[in-house]
Structure formats: C-alpha cells, structure tokens
Simulated assay, not measured.
Amino acid sequence: MIVERGTVIGPAGAGRVWVETRRRGVCGACEARSGCGIHLLGEAGGGRRNRVAVLAEAGCEPGEVVELGLREHALLLGSAMVYLVPLCGLFAGAVLALAAFGPAAEGAALVGGLLGLALGLAHTRRFARRIARDPRFQPVILRHAGVAASRDRRD
C-alpha cells in the first residue's frame, strides 16, 4: 500500500472528502542532490499541493490530518493503461500499416501509428470511466492523525 499524509479540506459529496497533500521530494536521503537533474526539477516545482477526492467514513472534519492509502495494484494498472496502451497502439498501428502497404509507404506508417495511438487513448478513456467509482482504485483514509497545527494557504 502506498501511504501519504494529507489534510482534510472539506466534503466532496457521495461519501468522499477533499484531502490536500503536499508533493514531497523523492531524493531527501540521496547524497547526489547537488548534481542531480531530478532534484533540481523537484526544487523548481517543490511544495506544490494536490487535492484528491478520497473515500471516507463520516466524521472527517476540515483541518484534520489523515493518512491516505492507495493499493499498489491500482497505481501500476493505472500507469500501464495511461502510458503503455497508447504507446503499444502507436507501434502496432505503424507496424500493421507497414506490413499492409510495404516498407516504402512511410505515410501509411505515420497514419497507421496515429490511428493506433487514437485507439489506445480511446481505450484508456473507457477504462478510466469504468474505474472512476470503483473503490479498489480509489485512495482511502487509513488513519486519523489529529488536527493540523497551522494551515499555510499560500501557493
């Protein structure tokens, strides 16, 4: 389970609450920070807040600090659908067009690749709609950790 802390902002309707999390750097313990491009990118956009609608039981109050959880399976499947399916559609469409029209038909490969990409994106969109309300793919509140001492609302 992937765990993150956040602050309850308010109700989101349908048994959900809005929770605000702060993006953390991934390289806090790394010793190569000064020469690392990923660290520099994290510093440039660091501290940004994210808002997520989270499945919650009654009793979540605004300002309360909670621990969120998301199953690894949900993250891995979602990532594969968003990245791999359209990419595989792009390659499959280009290869099928080349096989059908011959290696000299670069235009056909381009069109076939774009059609495959469009089909992959359409499949991903249907998948996203299908799992939008599935509790297995939603973050949930694992634990209530108290009330936030202060809430800095500057962005």
Score class of each variant (00 low, 15 high):
Ile141Trp: 01
Leu55Met: 10
Ala92Thr: 10
Ala80Glu: 03
Ala12Val: 05
Thr21Val: 12
Gly35Lys: 12
Gly13Gln: 09
Leu87Arg: 01
Val111Asn: 00
Glu67Arg: 15
Ile9Leu: 13
Ala44Gln: 07
Ala148Ile: 03
Gly42Pro: 03
Val52His: 12
Val140Gly: 07
Gly78Val: 02
Leu70Thr: 10
Leu90Thr: 04
Ala29Leu: 14
Arg151Glu: 09
Val3Ser: 13
Ala128Asp: 12
Gly107Met: 07
Ala56Trp: 05
Asp155Thr: 11
Gly63Glu: 09
Glu4His: 11
Ala145Met: 05
Leu70Asn: 07
Ala74Ser: 14
Arg33Leu: 10
Leu98Gly: 14
Thr7Pro: 00
Leu77Trp: 10
Glu20Tyr: 11
Arg22Glu: 15
Ala105Thr: 09
Leu115Lys: 01
Ala12Gly: 04
Val65Pro: 01
Glu31Thr: 15
Leu142Ala: 03
Tyr83Gly: 07
Gly45Met: 15
Leu41Tyr: 08
Ala58Met: 05
Leu114Cys: 12
Glu61Gln: 15
Cys60Gln: 15
Gly120Gln: 00
Arg130Ile: 00
Tyr83Lys: 13
Gly42Met: 08
Arg129His: 10
Cys27Arg: 09
Ser34Lys: 14
Ala109Thr: 01
Glu57Phe: 02
Ala104Arg: 15
Leu90Gly: 05
Arg153Asp: 14
His123Cys: 15
Gly102Pro: 02
Arg33Tyr: 07
Arg125Ala: 12
Gly112Asn: 05
Leu142Tyr: 04
Leu70Met: 14
Val95Gly: 06
Gly113Leu: 04
Leu142Cys: 03
Glu31Leu: 14
Pro11Asn: 13
Gly37Met: 06
Met1Val: 12
Leu40Ile: 04
Cys60Arg: 13
Ile131Val: 11
Ala29Val: 14
Arg133Ser: 09
Ala149Asn: 06
Pro135Ala: 09
Ile2Arg: 05
Cys36Arg: 06
Leu110Val: 12
Ala12Tyr: 07
Ala105Gly: 07
Ala109Ser: 02
Glu57Lys: 07
Leu40Pro: 00
Asp155Pro: 01
Arg125Trp: 13
Gly93Phe: 06
Met1Lys: 07
Ala12Trp: 04
Arg49Gly: 07
Arg49Asp: 07
Ile2Ser: 01
Gly69Trp: 02
Pro62Ala: 06
Gly116Asn: 09
Gly107Lys: 04
His39Met: 12
Leu68Pro: 00
Arg23Asn: 08
Arg51Pro: 02
Glu64Ile: 04
Leu96Cys: 11
Trp18Ile: 04
Pro103His: 13
Ala100Gly: 08
Ser150Trp: 07
Asp152Thr: 10
Val3Lys: 14
Val17Gln: 02
Arg125Lys: 08
Val3His: 11
Leu55Gly: 05
Val17Ala: 02
Val26Gln: 13
Gly93His: 05
Ala58Cys: 04
Arg151Phe: 06
Phe127Pro: 02
Glu72Cys: 04
Ala145Ile: 00
Leu84Thr: 13
Gly25Ile: 08
Leu41Glu: 13
Ile9Val: 15
Arg143Gly: 00
Asp155Lys: 10
